[in-house]
């Protein structure tokens, strides 16, 4: 039981990174098998164009993995730098940053992402841009709040007294101490990004056909609920498994690293 979440994530990563090397034909049309139910020969059945659902789920893992990992990496890096710098330098710069953060937080996150990718146009790159623009704020706020409490610690003042520069203090003395809460936040952010990518694809704003994404598979599948429920259940189960695994892992990390500051 303990290792199931890690196992799910391992399979997710393997599908994503190894998928291109597997002999899969996610776009192969098999006309006699249109909407075929899961069975012995193809164990997740076929979709409305006769494409194999199993192979599309495997390929869809790549979209969700690449998008969510990139988004969280970009948001984490940018947010951490902005947040720590802001708290460190204080004054007008800090004041401005807080205002910008407040304005971004005044939008419900997914709504801003929908608007941005709606305006930028569909496609994987634009989804990554839209979700990163929305995502950095949480990290910036967390990093700023943590830095504010840390910057008066003795080791930081000692480093200043020894003449260390701003960047050196940030990199060597502040960010390592921020790492625990940020890692926990990043874990939950991965779950959020998986949901957001699938959500945007569900609305038709993500990867474009014929490329496969769990969100767009769900959207296409909802039209055939009566005759082919597996079209919704297969990608739905994949999303649920990954998000659940990430969340469980995040909870465990939070307990392990004893992070209490999460809001």
């Amino acid at each position: 039981m303990r290792y199931i979440p890690a196992l799910v994530l391992l399979i997710w990563a393997l599908c994503a990174l190894g998928g291109p090397f597997l002999p899969l034909e996610p776009n192969a049309v098999d006309l006699p098998r249109i909407l075929a139910a899961p069975g012995v020969e193809s164990w997740l059945g076929h979709d409305e164009l006769g494409r194999p659902v199993w192979e599309r789920v495997v390929v869809g893992a790549r979209t969700s993995f690449v998008v969510s990992v990139l988004v969280v990496a970009i948001a984490l890096a940018f947010g951490t730098v902005v947040g720590t710098l802001s708290a460190w330098s204080g004054g007008l710069w800090d004041h401005l940053t807080v205002r910008v953060i407040d304005i971004f937080l005044a939008f419900p996150g997914i709504l801003l992402a929908i608007a941005l990718s709606g305006v930028l146009g569909p496609g994987e790159k634009n989804v990554i841009i839209a979700l990163s623009v929305v995502g950095w704020v949480g990290f910036a706020r967390l990093a700023r709040a943590q830095t504010l409490t840390l910057k008066h610690r003795e080791h930081v003042r000692a480093a200043m007294a020894l003449g260390s520069g701003t960047w050196r203090i940030l990199a060597r003395h502040l960010i390592p101490l921020l790492a625990a809460p940020l890692i926990v936040e990043a874990t939950f952010a991965v779950a959020g990004a998986v949901i957001a990518e699938a959500g945007l694809s569900f609305l038709g704003l993500g990867v474009q056909p014929p490329a496969a994404s769990w969100g767009s598979m769900l959207r296409d599948g909802t039209r055939y609920l009566l005759v082919a429920p597996h079209l919704v259940l297969a990608p739905g189960a994949a999303i649920l498994a990954v998000v659940l695994a990430v969340n469980l892992l995040g909870d465990r990390l939070r307990d392990r690293l004893d992070v209490k500051t999460r809001k």
């Binding site: 949901i195 699938a198 769900l218 959207r219 609920l225 999303i239 649920l240 659940l244 969340n247 469980l248």
Partner: peptide, 18 residues
Amino acid sequence: SMLGVSVPNFVLGPVLIM
């Protein structure tokens, strides 16, 4: 609670409809 935060509404919705 764990399941509820992990299931996105575009998964839950179609399943409930079904």
